[in-house]
Simulated scan of single mutants.
Amino acid sequence: MNNNTSLIWNIVLTLAVAVLFFLHFSSKPSADAGVAADGNVVPGRRTVYVQVDSLLKNYDFFKDTRKELENKNFQLENELNTKGRSLQNEVAFFQQKAQTMTPEQARSTEAQLMKKQQDLVAYRDQSAQALGMEEAKKNEELYKNIRSYIDKYNKENGYEYVLGYSLGGGILFANPSLDVTQKIIDGLNKEYKGSNKSAAADSTKKK
């Protein structure tokens, strides 16, 4: 069941494998200079980076989404456990009373119990699939939010590259002065807070 709520691992892999958010503005190269690995100035290259792990850890949308999915998974597991114990009790009761039943009654009861078991398995699979689809949708929304804000942020700053920096990723070193993680986090959380207020206002109006 936990595989269907692995949002944090799925999205980290999604961002880490991609390694970078690639934003290239070819129409108007910047006159500002970047710094190469050997310390030499490279004209026309403005690059910053975002720490992916820190971004996810501090992005309120991600934290809320992870908590929501974990709660749904927990509720589903409890529901399945309750239904499973109830079915086990019915089976145990049937086994105790089977000798007092006619063959026809025993076959009928056994068929009913098998049907309940099949229904429970089907419900488990359908619920897990629905939860997995919801998780995938949230993953997509998360990536869309991040990419959309970085696009917006970059229009105001004109960077040629906004790299995704993560431990074990393709970037082995990043100058701390080029780290814009906190600015991206602040901007994302501000937009998320605003969207929540708008949603709450719309809900109030509908009532």
Rank of each mutant, 00 (worst) to 15 (best):
L163H: 09
T100L: 10
D179S: 11
T109W: 03
K116M: 09
A128H: 08
K152D: 14
S177P: 07
L178F: 13
E134F: 03
E140G: 02
T100Y: 05
T82E: 04
S26N: 14
G169Y: 09
I146V: 12
F25M: 12
V52Y: 02
L172D: 12
P176N: 11
I146K: 03
M133Q: 15
K57W: 02
Y49K: 03
K116F: 01
G168K: 08
L87V: 00
F62A: 03
N10T: 05
S6N: 15
S195E: 15
Y161S: 10
V17T: 14
L87D: 00
F22T: 10
F21S: 06
G169T: 09
V17K: 13
P29M: 03
V17H: 12
A122Q: 12
V91Y: 05
L7K: 01
Y161A: 11
E191N: 15
G34S: 08
T65L: 00
G170T: 12
K67G: 02
K67M: 03
E135H: 06
K72M: 04
E134R: 13
I184A: 09
L56R: 01
N175E: 14
K72H: 00
D60I: 06
K183D: 15
I185Q: 11
A37P: 04
K144D: 06
S86Y: 02
V91H: 00
G164S: 08
G164Q: 08
K205Y: 10
N58M: 03
T181M: 08
E79W: 02
S54I: 09
N189T: 11
T181D: 07
Y149H: 07
I184V: 15
A18W: 03
K72R: 09
N145S: 13
Y161Q: 14
G158C: 07
N10P: 00
T204A: 15
A201F: 11
F94K: 01
S166R: 10
T65A: 13
V180Q: 14
G39N: 03
N10R: 14
S195Y: 08
Q112Y: 02
Q96A: 08
I146T: 03
L55A: 02
E104S: 02
N58K: 08
S148D: 15
F61C: 03
L120N: 01
V17N: 13
E160D: 15
N175I: 09
M114N: 15
L113P: 01
L188C: 11
